[in-house]
Design a protein around this nucleic acid. Structure first.
Lengths: 209, 209
DNA sequence: GACTGTGAAGCCATTCACAGCT
DNA sequence: AGCTGTGAATGGCTTCACAGTC
């Protein structure tokens, strides 16, 4: 359990810093200041320093941060220095896209299987990952000790998928169905609503006009 | 220009309320209280009332809100009572999934075309929507007065796509590439980072353990 | 009696400004 | 001299509590 209360927004930013540090590493940059990081990710140097300070002292006064070390620290903080077993439920367009999404693999997420209840899809592969029947979801989660489940089914089936996952002992759920779901508090839960993001844009367009 | 400063989080919630009200409407419910809405979307009644109060008085004291009226008001507030012309750039897995995503059509977003620079894809259709060559993006945005652009290309091409969109006079951009992009302040901009969401989950898993 | 609308209070996140190292 | 780390100040969002209305 963490000592201090850390804003969730800070975690989101750490994740972005890490991606930026990856770029710097690739370009051979060895040292970076909070000012440069801030410019690279569009926020303030004070914010960068504060976010990092929640977790320790990673820099050198008068100098800055070592790119490689800092990135390793952040990766550890985010829990990405271990393997995470993931299943995706729903082999429709979105589920297929998520299954093949490179950003997940790059960050070490291991997608073991995709589940669907369409018998025509079961048995096929999506980018090397097998499609299994939804009836075997619970059993699979238990047997493989899957920690993370991604929901990519139509809204009306989302709650029942979540219930199966929870019952099977999953630890975290990422939901893409546009519906509010109930998930017990011992399971980590986040929801990504694609249409909401567009609607924030249109709101701003009409409001600032 | 809006008089009061409205928290962006409130807009996100309005969008969720609207989706919940759609459900109620479908079920024939005519009146709803802030308590019921709060239960339906997992937040507090006070929050619901405050969010609505930013925009007017939509309820009746002692009674509640008329479901249909309230939803119409929210839809108007979010700018969804008009047609929005949208283009998607990138006909890969994610771009294809977004193109066919029902949640966009349901909320009135009109996706006119998908752009890609793969000559094998150009000329094909995705769910009835044509794939056009990226070289024609700027011209298309101008000719059709496209207001919203969705970026679903690999990270390294994202900035150049955005630059073309901005130059062509687009009003808002939704980015799915995992990279920080620079967009002039007169263009509305939001970024959805799929991996970040998973990383917040894994952080919480390791932090609360 | 029930439920909305809202000023005020409380809380949390961000920004400031400077002390502390190198 | 330069840049980090951090307590203090600020600003903004959420919650409280109650007056207002049906």
């Amino acid at each position: 359990m963490k000592a201090l209360k850390i804003p969730e927004a800070a975690i989101v930013r750490l994740s972005v810093y890490s991606r930026y540090l990856n770029q710097l590493e690739k370009n051979g940059v060895t040292t970076v200041s909070s000012i440069e990081i801030a410019e690279g990710v569009n926020n303030s140097p004070a914010q960068v320093r504060k976010d990092l300070a929640y977790f320790g002292e990673f820099g050198t006064r008068g100098v800055g941060y070592n790119v490689k070390d800092l990135n390793r620290h952040i990766i550890k903080i985010l829990g990405l220095d271990m393997e995470w077993k993931v299943v995706i439920v729903g082999a429709g367009n979105l589920g297929s896209a998520l299954t093949q999404y490179k950003g997940f693999h790059e960050r070490g997420f291991n997608i073991l299987a995709v589940f669907d209840n369409d018998v025509n899809k079961v048995g096929l592969m999506i980018g090397g990952i097998p499609i299994l029947p939804s009836t075997r979801l619970a059993e699979f989660i238990k047997r493989e000790s899957v920690q993370v489940g991604i929901v990519a089914v139509p809204a009306k089936y989302a709650q029942e998928v979540v219930d199966v996952m929870v019952e099977a002992g999953i630890k975290a759920i990422l939901n893409f169905a546009p519906r509010v779901l109930s998930v017990p508090s011992h399971v980590e839960y986040r929801s990504v609503d694609l249409a909401v993001n567009l609607e924030v844009l249109t709101f701003n367009l009409v409001a600032n006009k």
